[in-house]
């Protein structure tokens, strides 16, 4: 059964208790050992593959040199026939037959090697797939385990803080309030900055005699007199 399926069954069965191991630590260790064994077997298979491939190349080379020998001796035999050296030609032909015999033997060996190579390659591919798959499953188990541990650690922390007492809705309200406060502060700071900008501009304008003039004592007095005279 795949780990995910096991987890699914466990979760469905209500493994809710914090710390309740879905897969026990021993099973994880066994699993890890299996992966290590598979990895070792894979390395072994890869080493065998290189050896077999080297032998395959050697055998092919031997066959090629036999082919050359056969070709060469066929020329010799033809030459002997040309010179009417019937006996010699026969002897050369015997040699060719020997080469061909050897070649057919080597060919069989080569076929075995080639078959071995493709078999090993297939095995290696299969083993690699299995290892990757096992590692994925192991990582799932370990993640589940570490999430459980993390949950325990988190629960411990939350139980000692206020957050355990607060509902999500209250939390949300607080956060929104904080965001609003922050925005208000930003707005206020901005307003303050704008105002001080205005002020310094006004100061400059006044110094240059532009805009509203500050009321002068003489003007005020003139205004009061004007009222009295009415």
């Amino acid at each position: 059964m795949s780990i995910l399926k096991k987890l699914f069954t466990a979760v469905k069965g209500g493994v809710n208790e914090v710390g309740e191991g879905i897969v026990d630590a021993n099973a994880i260790r066994i699993f890890e050992q299996e992966i290590r064994d598979a990895q070792a077997a894979l390395n072994e298979a890869k080493r065998s593959l290189t050896e077999v491939m080297a032998k395959e190349i050697q055998t092919s080379r031997a066959i090629k040199s036999l082919d050359e020998e056969i070709g060469k001796h066929e020329t010799y035999a033809a030459q002997a026939l040309d010179k009417d050296e019937e006996t010699l030609a026969l002897e050369i032909a015997g040699k060719i037959a020997e080469f061909e015999q050897e070649k057919s033997e080597q060919q069989q060996v080569l076929n075995t090697f080639s078959a071995n190579v493709s078999k090993l390659k297939e095995q290696i591919k299969q083993a690699e797939k299995t290892i990757v798959e096992n590692q994925r499953q192991l990582s799932m188990v370990k993640t589940t385990e570490s999430v459980q541990k993390a949950t325990m650690a988190v629960n411990d922390t939350m139980a000692s803080g206020d957050s355990a007492m607060t509902s999500a809705k209250q939390s949300l309200e607080r956060i929104k309030q904080r965001q609003m406060d922050r925005q208000d502060q930003l707005d206020a700071a901005q307003q303050l900055a704008d105002e001080s900008n205005d002020k310094s501009l006004n100061d400059k304008m006044r110094a240059a005699g532009i805009g509203e003039e500050a009321a002068k004592g003489a003007d005020v007095l003139a205004r009061i007199r004007a009222k009295q005279n009415k």
């Binding site: 990582s139 993640t143 999430v147 541990k149 993390a150 607080r174 956060i175």
Partner: peptide, 16 residues
Amino acid sequence: NDELPIFVTRTEEQIL
């Protein structure tokens, strides 16, 4: 925003 803390944990393969 301490009402909604983020808990970060690390395994061999990922950071949660």
